[in-house]
Design a protein around this nucleic acid. Sequence first.
DNA 1: GCCGGAATCGCAACATGTTTCACTTTGGCG
DNA 2: CGCCAAAGTGAAACATGTTGCGATTCCGGC
Lengths: 209, 209
Amino acid sequence: MRTPTTSDGPAQGTALARSQAARRRRVLDAALRLAERGGFDAVQMRDVATEANVALGTVYRYFTSKERLLLEAMVEEIEALAARLEARPPVGTTPADRIVEVLSRGTASLQRHPEVTAAMVRAFGAADEADVVRRVSDIMTGIITGVMHDGPPTPRDLAVARTLQQVWLSSLIGWVGGVDDPARVVVDLETATQLLLGDGAIDGARAER
Amino acid sequence: MRTPTTSDGPAQGTALARSQAARRRRVLDAALRLAERGGFDAVQMRDVATEANVALGTVYRYFTSKERLLLEAMVEEIEALAARLEARPPVGTTPADRIVEVLSRGTASLQRHPEVTAAMVRAFGAADEADVVRRVSDIMTGIITGVMHDGPPTPRDLAVARTLQQVWLSSLIGWVGGVDDPARVVVDLETATQLLLGDGAIDGARAER
DNA sequence: GCCGGAATCGCAACATGTTTCACTTTGGCG
DNA sequence: CGCCAAAGTGAAACATGTTGCGATTCCGGC
């Protein structure tokens, strides 16, 4: 009656655990494959099950809802993104530069699979899945605090990072909802970063290099 | 085949137009009534139809989807909110004060009917209804620019207002999604406003009055 | 190697948003 | 007044997320 992910059954490494991990992966991959072309609507639970060679009930044993499925996929994606960014850190000299760089690269990465991102963001916007949603937000915030400066982030850093994360998400929602064009996401993030970090003036024409 | 709201049929004021307006209103009210207790899920299209004394098909003639129905209700609510705020403007002396006041009052107003707001925000987060979504965002942004200072908003004002609107929405999503508690919305907005308008320092303990 | 229980399967049923369609009502207009 | 196209009705059908359940398979401990 418990989710298989809840650890306490057979120790990890056992055959059961392995086959379960494999199933879970197949389901996630199937969802991603379907999302790739067609976004949220194309991820139909029956198709996910079929594509993953698994019974529909099994999908629901691993993921209690479609939104949760997509959100857990989102956690993985954002985590991978965070890892890539950490592996090749931004080169900017000021915190603002580094933040903008990291957010731009992250957004570009998301936009490389627009339908997948659309599916995930839509799940995020509607979800009644507080815990996973929080996990996603936290990772996004972490991406930002991670490039601010050495040492632990100050309370102000945290506030700035949280604000930027919120702008990031709103922008993504605007983009996948068709309200704004994709480029707008990055523009919004640059603008917000500048405003928050009190860089230069914003007067229609951005000034620096 | 056209939405009745599309004006070009009989001139406004005619009996037809009046009965249509009445129907539309009944549908919106029914949706609000249902949302009031039970939020998004309690707004079931069949129930909306019944409660509005209208056929299901008619609901869909006026509103092409459940989300659109809720979003148009949201437009009305936010417009009403904007009007109330304009009728009794904030009294703060600095723009930041006025913005925080306006956003706090607005949020408080939304939180007075949590389920209704939850329904609307959820529709917003998931919607594939670019035009209405944009309308909602624009009104929210207008609420902010409206209290910044006399005269037309500068480009910088617009950027600040947009950013705050994005923070507002993200916070609302966090609240209705159960990620954050209600008070967090206002806190986020105060924080963001201070950061954006470079008021005081943020160091854990807010300083001023 | 065998057993018991958990995990999976297959499939049907249910809930609800959305569409369709044939029929009826209604309001504007000649 | 009487006609008719548009609007509305009622009910069924469809699409898809979600749940339930009996039959089957698989794993780990004995």
